[in-house]
Structures are given as structure tokens and as C-alpha cells.
């Protein structure tokens, strides 16, 4: 579904990383880890067409991202759910309206129905449905972002530090939701510093751990 082949990305006059290859297949589960500033978020952005590589090739659902026009990128995004580190909500809309936003912009708002109630129940936010995003706690925002990301039943779920602002209990809850999605056949890619989260995931699911360091992407060692 998503293939990065020998990708390099330059930033600030130098190479952030080079020679990166990555394949996300249906049902795969990847963790992306590494020190801050090595380009994890940039690599994720390449995976959902927010950025284009300096060299190499990024294929999104069989199409080269460099050759996509803005409409094609928009349609492709409906197949990729993204959970940002800072969540990125429309603060003037309620949690429920934010969660259904992917359907709204696709002109399918009338299809919401019971799905929204079920989805909010799944992430434990039924009572917060009518609240505004600034009124939510960090964990609630992460769960709302996850609910929004899966609203259109995407093929791929990409999360950038989804447990960065939450306690251990909440991070376990979020991990459980991500593993559930993966068991439904979704490809999952999570960027995180949280080694405990990776260990907890590996105990439950076949996950591949990648480490971005020194400008190269490598498989992490057996210590994880």
C-alpha cells in the first residue's frame, strides 16, 4: 500500500536521512523510533503525502506521490488515518463534529448514524461528544484524534507519538485500540520514543521496530 524506495530528504541544507526503504502492507504493524530530530515526523509525512522526497520514490496505493496533484492527494488521504502529536482539531467544532470531519469533507456526512456513537463509545468519549477540543484532557484529545483517524475506515493508520501526552494507563488503552485496528487488517505505523509501549505491543502483536538514527533507517535490535 505504501512503499518508500531509497528515499532521501534534505532539510536545512543537509540530508536528514538517505537510503530509506519501507513497505507498509495490509495487516502490518511497525514502530518507528529514534532520537529526537532524526526525522521521524518527516518520514511519517512522506508516508501520507504531506511532503515529497528529495530523491527516491514514495508510492502511495500504487501511485508516485511526486506525480499526484492536490485532488489526488486529498483522495489518497481518505485512505490514510493520521493521528498527530498535537492532534490538530478545529477548535470551534465539537468533538463529535471533529470526529466526523473526514466524512463531512468527503460529502458523506449523512452516512454517520450509529457509527459515530459506536466509535465514540469505543474510544470512551461518549460524554465528551458535545464538548469543544480545548476542553478535553491530553488523553481525551489523543483518543478523539484516533477516532477521527479511523472514521472513514482507512487502510493505513499513522500515528505520531500518540501516547506522548498521556499516562501509562491511557497509553495502554490507546495501544489496545491500535492493536484492535491492526487485527481488522489495517496497516499501522507508530512513531514513538516510548520503549515500554513497544514492548507491550510486541507482547500482543507481531510488530516490526525500525530505528531512524544517523540519517539511516535500520531494524531495531533484539533488545526490544
Amino acid at each position: 500500500m505504501i512503499r518508500l524506495e531509497n528515499v532521501a530528504y534534505n532539510y536545512g541544507g543537509g540530508a536528514l536521512f538517505t537510503g530509506v526503504s519501507l513497505h507498509l502492507e495490509p495487516g502490518s504493524f511497525h514502530f518507528l523510533t529514534g532520537p529526537s530530530g532524526t526525522g521521524k515526523t518527516t518520514l511519517l509525512k512522506l508516508c501520507y503525502g504531506e511532503l515529497l522526497p528529495t530523491s527516491g520514490r514514495v508510492q502511495l496505493f500504487g501511485k508516485d506521490s511526486a506525480g499526484m496533484n492536490r485532488d489526488e492527494v486529498a483522495l489518497m488521504r481518505r485512505r490514510i488515518g493520521v493521528v498527530h502529536q498535537d492532534c490538530q482539531f478545529l477548535d470551534h467544532l465539537s468533538v463529535a463534529e471533529n470526529v466526523v470531519l473526514p466524512l463531512t469533507v468527503a460529502g458523506r456526512a449523512n452516512e454517520v448514524g450509529q457509527d459515530l456513537t459506536d466509535l465514540l463509545g469505543w474510544v470512551g468519549l461518549e460524554r465528551q461528544a458535545s464538548q469543544l477540543p480545548p476542553e478535553l484532557s491530553g488523553g481525551e484529545r489523543q483518543r478523539a484524534a484516533l477516532a477521527r483517524a479511523v472514521m472513514v475506515s482507512p487502510d493505513v493508520l499513522i500515528a505520531d507519538e500518540p501516547t506522548g501526552n498521556v499516562d501509562w494507563e491511557m497509553s495502554q488503552r490507546l495501544l489496545h485500540l491500535l492493536i484492535e485496528l491492526n487485527r481488522m487488517g489495517k496497516a499501522v505505523l507508530i512513531a514513538t520514543h516510548d520503549l515500554n509501549l513497544i514492548r507491550a505491543a510486541k507482547a500482543q502483536v507481531q510488530a516490526r521496530v525500525l530505528r531512524l538514527q544517523g540519517g539511516e533507517l535500520q531494524s531495531a535490535g533484539a533488545e526490544l
Binding site: R70, D71, A74, L75, R78, H84, Q88, L90, L101
Partner: peptide, 16 residues
């Protein structure tokens, strides 16, 4: 700008 970024993130086309 932020609203536009979020709308694009969830798949909104420019025409929308």
C-alpha cells in the same frame, strides 16, 4: 491557515 491544514489532513479537496 490551521483550519485549512486540518481539513486537508482529513482529505478535503481544495474545491471543497
Amino acid at each position: 491557515g490551521q483550519v485549512i491544514r486540518v481539513m486537508r489532513l482529513v482529505g478535503a479537496r481544495d474545491t471543497y
